[in-house]
Design a protein around this nucleic acid. Structure first.
Length: 593
RNA sequence: GGCCCUGUGGCGCAGUUGGUUAGCGCGCCGCCCUGUCACGGCGGAGGUCGUGGGUUCGAGCCCCAUCAGCGUCGCCA
């Protein structure tokens, strides 16, 4: 008897229903749990579709084998579907009304005792999960998330297909350009001493597809960036990458917004309203972040004017140096102890604050860390402008304006977390538009593109390029969901002279432009249509749709924080002859393992 | 590279101001059990407390170093 089972013969464990009574079925799956009553054995058999209860009768020849079954053994079972005896149905299972009386049992494979329970979603050490990823993926949560991921990607492909976009693959081995994130490099064997780069995104290739006349492009694109990891950042990730010719910014926004609305409706059954839009300047001012979490309000308020003429030396010096005092309401925060406020102040400092003034609006009076300098007139004005009530606390951050807003924005997230305002079942999308074209690179002191250098300046912005380049606005937009940047896009430069002008402004010489982007500027010279597009991070979208807060929960084979794949144990050393073929020699000592 | 938290049987955790033999739940092994579904009952095995050093009469607990992991800042056009 072969171990192979034809798909036609097999019935899914989770698909058995009351209507199947009397049917002879062949089930394949894993032992989810065994309940041995001595004279009667129940086994929950699990496959991707669900769980079915199979029953072994003591008089049956398979009974001794059933006694030796253990969790995660792989079985093939033939038997007959029958109704469970009255009163023994299990309402918790879709298959709970029936069971399979076993006629024939085959153990296709035994399992070692798993290092952690597979039949549940109990917390397990992250490293152990990654080392035994095949077992982790077998668990219900990951089965669910990976399936949801498929459905989201499928919905996206369907959406763009219906709108006449073509999915076009772009190469993984491309050219390194020094801007942006660190590249992953692939050495060339045929051309010693030279390297391909893995794409950080297919940006230039999709623009060239527009020049090539494809008009509407999309791709589920893999991207790689060699930077440090975060819960919402993996070194390799997937984007839904989109580009359109002869379009306005409005066209791109409408397309992507419709796509997300479609996905949410089809996959989650959630109807999303229109996405609110904010300018970059607005979100910084009101939320202290360029990716605001709009599931809750808690808007920041600039309260500098309230403390005009204050004797408090911190406020005084900030006001004199034209900085800002930014206020944040902490609902219910008046119940915090001095110790709690001290800890909160410490947290603010870790987030870049110079300090924090707190004011507790207790029912029994107002307490503050700057008691002497906060008078009734201040309290009244603060209550009014922050819409604060008795029982709340008010947190104040004084610094140069951008720094004060950023810190307050981070603390806004912290306060929201403490107040339970981060509801995972709420989806607050928003657009952020009108980004500055440039921002000052703190490392070099030079202006650097806020997005990438292929972005077109906004209408009428070219006139600032010489006089005040930092004042230029870009036709660049971000899509934000629940405080996560899902992705960004822009209308691109399609005139070669404009593109050259931007490169020059960024300090590149004509030779450098030719060496790095010559192929691209040349392409623009052959009738490049006006075009624009966007890319959204699929991993983050799936993460939020699944209610997870870590990308690893929606990526089948992720890297750990040190960018290692602990299951495969990569990266790893390679044989000397492989390096020789690539004309490479490592300067690093071989790792001791 | 900085900072925070964590590290105790296979897994998840507890372990008091430093004090006798390091506990609990799950899992695992054995026996019993014919309607369970987180089955139940009885019994059992399993720990150099991440590693190294120090303080102390005595360290799972205190100190230093180091490793690993989670998070975060820097970084991520």
């Amino acid at each position: 008897m072969t171990d192979q089972t034809s798909q036609a013969a097999r019935t899914a464990c989770g698909a058995i229903r009351a209507g199947d009574q009397g049917k002879a079925v062949e089930l394949c799956g894993w032992v989810n749990r065994r309940r041995d009553h001595g004279g009667l054995i129940f086994v929950d058999l699990r496959d991707r579709e669900g769980i079915a209860q199979i029953v072994f009768d003591p008089k049956h020849p398979s009974f001794p084998d059933a006694e030796r079954l253990r969790n995660e053994d792989v079985l093939r079972v033939r038997g007959t579907v029958r109704a469970r005896p009255q009163g023994t149905e299990n309402a918790k299972l879709p298959t709970g009304g029936v069971e399979i009386g076993v006629d024939d049992l085959e153990v296709l494979n035994r399992s070692e005792v798993p290092p952690f329970p597979v039949n549940g979603d109990d917390d397990v050490d992250e490293n152990l999960r990654l080392e035994y990823r095949y077992l982790d993926l077998r668990r219900p949560r990951m089965q669910r998330n990976i399936a949801t991921r498929h459905r989201i990607v499928k919905a996206m492909r369907d959406f763009f297909d219906a709108r006449d976009f073509l999915e076009i693959e772009t190469p993984m081995l491309i050219k390194s350009t020094p801007e942006g994130a660190r590249d992953y490099l692939v050495p060339s064997r045929i051309h010693p001493g030279t390297f391909y780069a893995l794409p950080q995104s297919p940006q230039l290739l999709k623009q060239i597809l527009m020049i090539a006349g494809f008009g509407r492009y999309m791709q589920i694109a893999r991207c790689m960036r060699d930077e440090d990891l975060r819960a919402d950042r993996q070194p390799e990730f997937t984007q839904v990458d989109v580009e359109m010719s002869f379009c306005t910014q409005e066209d791109v926004l409408e397309t992507m917004e419709s796509c997300m609305r479609d996905v949410w409706k089809r996959v989650l059954g959630v109807e999303l309203g229109p996405f609110p839009r904010f300018s970059h300047a607005q979100v910084l001012e009101r939320f202290g972040s360029d990716k605001p979490d709009l599931r809750y309000d808690l808007e920041l308020v600039n309260v500098t004017s309230i403390f005009e003429g204050s004797d408090f030396v911190v406020f005084k010096s900030v006001i004199e140096s034209r900085g800002a005092i930014v206020g944040l309401r902490y609902p219910g925060g008046a119940s915090l102890s001095r110790r709690d406020f001290d800890a909160l102040t410490e947290l603010a400092k870790q987030n870049g604050a110079k300090g924090m003034v707190w004011i507790a609006l207790g029912a029994d009076g107002v307490k503050s860390s700057a008691q002497k300098f906060v008078g009734d007139e201040h309290i009244g004005a603060l209550r009014y402008s922050l819409d604060a009530e008795t029982g709340d606390a008010i947190l104040l951050f004084a610094d140069a304006r951008p720094a004060a807003l950023t810190v307050a924005g981070r603390m806004r997230g912290e306060v929201a977390e403490r107040c339970g305002l981060r509801d995972k079942t709420k989806y607050a999308f928003c657009w952020v538009t009108d980004f500055p074209y440039l921002e000052l690179d703190e490392a070099t002191g030079r202006p650097a593109p806020a997005h990438h250098p292929f972005t077109a300046p906004g209408e009428g912005q070219w006139e600032f390029i010489d006089s005040d380049p930092l004042a230029m606005r870009a036709q660049h937009y971000d899509l934000v969901l629940n405080g996560f940047e899902l992705g960004s896009g822009s209308i691109r430069n399609h005139k070669p002279e404009h593109q050259r002008r931007i490169f020059e402004m960024l300090g590149m010489t004509p030779e450098q432009i030719e060496e790095r982007f010559g192929f691209f500027v040349r392409a623009l010279e052959y009738g490049a249509p006006p075009h624009g597009g966007m890319a959204l991070g699929i991993d983050r979208i799936v993460m939020l749709a699944c209610g997870e807060d870590d990308l690893r929960e929606v990526v089948a084979f992720p890297k750990n924080q040190a960018a290692r794949d602990v299951m495969m144990d990569s990266p790893s050393a390679v044989a000397e002859n492989l390096l020789r073929d690539l004309s490479l020699r490592s300067t690093a000592p071989p790792p001791e393992r």
